[in-house]
Design a protein around this nucleic acid. Structure first.
Lengths: 175, 175
DNA sequence: CCTTTTTTTCTGTTTTTACAGAAAAGTCTG
DNA sequence: CAGACTTTTCTGTAAAAACAGAAAAAAAGG
């Protein structure tokens, strides 16, 4: 598949964005491509479309599968694995948030708890302990918010976000 | 200043987290150090504490200032610039969100709008156009939510987040 | 099973990013 | 404005990440 100009721009921009958020550029590109294509593609086709090495695509697909962003499907009469992603942005967002929470936020919270539980904390300034505690509290609140979001079906999540924006306005008016 | 064990762990972990989110490790470490220290430090002291090159600290401080996360202060009787950050996690979060929105999210939204406004969009599959539109819509909703958050004083933001979590639960119960 | 197709892993190269040290520029003080 | 101190910029090096191509492994077909 040869990318048309607009799709190409989208895919390249997405790769660029990935880089800025700590996601490998090719990984982001592969995902953007599957998202835009809206149909299962095999690794060979992805390779040709993006113009990267086959091995690179294989690795990227593995990575995307580990985030639950991409799944393997088999098409009848086809031997090759095909890969697809959800066409639902909200669902994708949900998966990304869940993944980053599990891989980065949770371990950080654990590390902070360990810091606070460590007897050596007594050697630190009181203010230091307080700020570590504040940071942990912040992370916990954010995590529980994320939890809430992750419980919804994507469509509901969208509505909920709209609601909370409106409520925020109402609260602000009272201040 | 010699870092005590707990503070060191915090600073190193924060640097590691930075890397994963597209922030230079030293930049993240410098910020974590200023946050934990809870007092203005000069570049020389930061250099010694972190064990990195002076030039590196200079660059990192510039970067942090451009995000409004760190500001210069002058202490009486001291010739050197001193640097401090807010001790308020919420305020820091606000600044980071504002920065990333401005530097990454807004330009992405602009790019997507350009894609949709481009006559060449007619050559793409209908589904492709639809998904680009969905993506833009998603970004716009998220941005307006971010806007809401950024308007509050940090303490209010915290309360608001608590509120929206409770509201989410209420909505879910009705489903 | 053996052959072919497909996928994954491994290894070396390239590219990018981070960084240190030196040089330059700027600032303050007397 | 001379000299010392401080900060920034520049340049080369080192480290890390991304990547391509080849080799190996796995899966499917006959």
């Amino acid at each position: 598949m040869e990318l048309k100009p607009i799709a190409e721009r989208f895919v390249l921009h997405w790769g660029e964005m990935g880089s800025r958020w700590g996601v490998n550029r090719t990984v982001a590109q592969v995902h953007a491509l599957l998202y835009l294509a809206g149909r299962p593609m095999d690794a060979e086709e992805i390779t040709e479309t993006l113009g990267v090495a086959r091995s690179n695509v294989s690795t990227s697909l593995k990575e995307l599968q580990s985030w639950n962003l991409v799944r393997v499907v088999h098409l009848k009469g086809e031997r090759r694995d095909h890969f697809e992603t959800s066409a639902d942005v909200w669902e994708l967002f949900k998966l990304i948030v869940a993944g980053r929470r599990q891989r980065e936020i949770d371990p950080t919270a654990t590390a902070l708890r360990e810091c606070l539980a460590n007897p050596a904390i007594a050697d630190e300034e009181e203010g230091t302990r307080q700020r570590i505690e504040d940071t942990l509290k912040f992370i916990e609140i954010m995590s529980s918010l994320a939890d809430e979001m992750l419980r919804y079906k994507p469509e509901t999540l969208m509505k909920t976000l709209g609601v909370s924006a409106r409520i925020s306005q109402a609260i602000r008016r009272k201040e």
